[in-house]
Design a protein around this nucleic acid. Structure first.
Lengths: 159, 159
DNA sequence: TAATTAGTTCAGAAATATATGAACTAAAAA
DNA sequence: TTTTTAGTTCATATATTTCTGAACTAATTA
């Protein structure tokens, strides 16, 4: 694969990546920026490079970058004597990807517990189903924490 | 707690539940219907009862119920000699709640693998980070399947 | 000091999602 | 046969989200 071919394919993947991040709740431009910073071999982009690369307005870039920083997925570095910001994906703890899911599972479990607590009939079909779900969710939540420890123990060095 | 008190609190919870389901990507009315069918002790609602209870138009109800059926979370039963549909939450396999998360994790892992495959430099900071994430995600995906089997083995009867 | 650079802010335009009323169908009841 | 019931469909109204241009700030350079 030539370098141009690769870059062309990567830029196509940026669009697909954007749609992937949209589904996670990011607005389209934020998703594409995140895609750009993740997919390309170039690992730092200035504000103007992002504007140019994605053909978006400066205000859109400014707004999306603010959102991405607040969401803790993008950061910028600065270089002494250089006023530009160099944006890059934040090197998160790798567990953040699964931690998010753990948080959602906990929310679901908590929500269902509130529902169950308010039921007059705790033995109705729905109540029993909800009980079962809470039990199963709590099982996975506990195991999740064990798995994380186990994984860390086996991978002390990297990450 | 009196019955009216309980019902009042449950109706408040229906609104909160609606917001919870919104976050999962359901439109507001679909979320509230799902909340209604989940939270209240009454386990079956007719079309008109839903319209009346949530103060929405028939077309909104029709549209939202269609979405909920397609999404596989609501179903209706019918009674011989009765033209009405009785809507209820679908008694899903309880694992569906965690299976959704497994699907998302798999999508993330697959997406990152495509990104990595397209990198010219597989040893850049981002590439190494992505490799680590893929490895960790695949670890959790494998363990997830084991946990599910384990849980089923310990809970043959219920659910 | 004037011009340029590197952005930010915000009012409003454009796009998208959501909800509604009105007209409709198809079955059942009067 | 007419009316009622139980919804569906669709054009459009309403609300929300997203994006942009224009005016701005604050630092740097000429």
């Amino acid at each position: 694969m030539t370098s141009e071919e690769r870059i062309k394919r990567q830029k196509e993947l940026v669009e697909a990546a954007g749609r992937y991040y949209d589904k996670q709740g990011f607005q389209p431009i934020a998703g594409r920026i995140l895609g750009l910073l993740t997919v390309m071999d170039k690992e730092q982009y200035t504000f103007d490079e992002i504007v140019e690369e994605l053909q978006i307005s400066k205000s859109s870039a400014s707004n999306a970058l603010r959102i991405l920083e607040i969401s803790n997925v993008v950061e910028y570095i600065t270089i002494p004597g250089d006023r530009k910001r160099y944006f890059q994906i934040k090197k998160l703890d790798k567990f953040s990807l699964v931690d998010e899911h753990r948080i959602r599972l906990k929310e679901t479990s908590d929500y269902l517990q509130v529902v169950l607590d308010l039921k007059a009939n705790k033995n109705s079909e729905n109540s029993l189903l909800i009980k079962n779900m809470i039990d199963m969710l709590n099982y996975f939540l506990n195991k999740f924490d064990e798995l994380k420890k186990e994984y860390m123990a086996n991978n002390q060095v990297s990450g």
